[in-house]
């Protein structure tokens, strides 16, 4: 930082000898030129960072902020996909109707249950895997990369493979169940089977990602903590409970927040899980999530106003979850 040109340029201006050089028009001009240059440098140093970060914010404004605000505006209108510019003001009707929209609450409930079925085992498994990977292993880099492979797979490709696995008549999972004497399960038709199946896709995809985050945090835990715990006679399990877990608390909170946000937006997996019913999430909306219901209202039923109101309601729910999380994390920090 010491080489910033505006400060570095200063000594040159005065030269080694302090005091003004003899007054002359050429020197005067020279000084003005230097001052001008210096100002330009200052401006450059001051403003170019903004120019450098601006691409993100411009993209955000165009593809994040504008859609957000426009969606808010549209949610107060009756708008149809057949004529998106033809808006009819309806005030808060799109929001008030949500309260007695059974399909919305069904979707909200499904989102919650799928969120729980997918997030809780996912994070617990991630913790276990991270713990194992934290030991000195041969080829540990290989395992770490392998953990991340599902995350790098596209949702569509992964879901289509899972659809095959969960097929009622020729699926591998029913075939395996048959070996242990369980009757074939209609994964697409049954409510809990469907939700479970959708959750497994999410678990498969995100466990490795969370495991790597846990692993990174575990490696930052000072080794001496374990040594002193070992000296006190703590077993490996006790070390995990009393050293590892408390040190990971902020990381766990982070993954919980990210997973919760992810769970509230689950869309691709249930959309593709029943390719024939797609947006309705099963024939009787068994695994229709909020994201899917939004999509159905907007793109299948063509009610953009209603879809916008659903989007904003989801946003509001997320904010509430965020606040709850904030309160819990503050309590936790205070208690530690």
């Amino acid at each position: 930082m010491a080489t910033r040109h505006d400060t570095a340029a200063l000594p040159v201006k005065g030269g080694a000898a302090p005091g003004r050089p003899p007054a002359g028009s050429s020197a005067d001009k020279d000084e003005r030129r230097r001052a001008k240059l210096s100002r330009r440098w200052q401006r450059d140093a001051r403003w170019s960072p903004y120019a450098f970060v601006s691409p993100f914010f411009l993209l955000f404004a165009a593809f994040g902020l504008f859609p957000l605000l426009y969606t808010g505006w549209a949610s107060l209108h009756q708008v149809e996909l057949t004529a998106p510019t033809d808006m009819n003001w309806v005030g808060l009707r799109n929001y008030t109707r949500i309260f007695d929209d059974d399909f919305f609450w069904n979707a909200a409930q499904n989102t919650l249950t799928i969120g729980i079925i997918s997030t809780v085992p996912q994070l617990m498994m991630a913790m276990g895997i991270a713990h194992i990977l934290n030991y000195k292993l041969r080829g540990s880099t290989f395992y770490r990369v392998a953990m991340l492979a599902p995350y790098a797979t596209s949702i569509a490709a992964a879901t289509l493979v899972f659809v095959l696995l969960y097929g009622r008549d020729y699926g591998m999972i029913n075939w395996a169940l048959d070996f242990v004497g369980v009757d074939p399960i209609a994964w697409q038709d049954d409510k809990w089977a469907g939700q479970f199946a959708v959750s497994t896709i999410i678990i498969w995809r995100w466990t490795g990602y969370n495991a790597l985050i846990y692993l990174a945090a575990m490696q930052a835990i000072p080794q001496d903590l374990y040594e002193s715990a070992a000296l006190d006679g703590a077993s490996r399990w006790k070390q995990f409970i009393h050293v590892t877990l408390p040190s990971l608390r902020p990381t766990i909170l982070f993954t919980v927040v990210v997973s919760t946000i992810g769970a509230s937006q689950v869309f691709g997996e249930p959309l593709l899980f029943d390719p024939n019913k797609s947006a309705s999430g099963g024939g009787e909306h068994q695994f229709q999530t909020l994201g899917l219901y939004l999509y159905e209202q907007g793109w299948v039923n063509q009610h953009l106003g209603r879809a916008s109101a659903i989007a904003w309601t989801m946003f509001a729910i997320l904010i509430v979850i965020g606040i709850i999380n904030h309160v819990i994390s503050r309590r936790l920090r205070a208690s530690s």
């Binding site: 505006d6 100002r39 200052q42 140093a45 001051r46």
Partner: peptide
């Protein structure tokens, strides 16, 4: 951050 380090300078309108 760079912007915090500097002391002043430049006409605000031009900026």
């Amino acid at each position: 951050p760079l912007s915090r380090q500097r002391s002043g300078g430049g006409k605000p309108i031009a900026r």
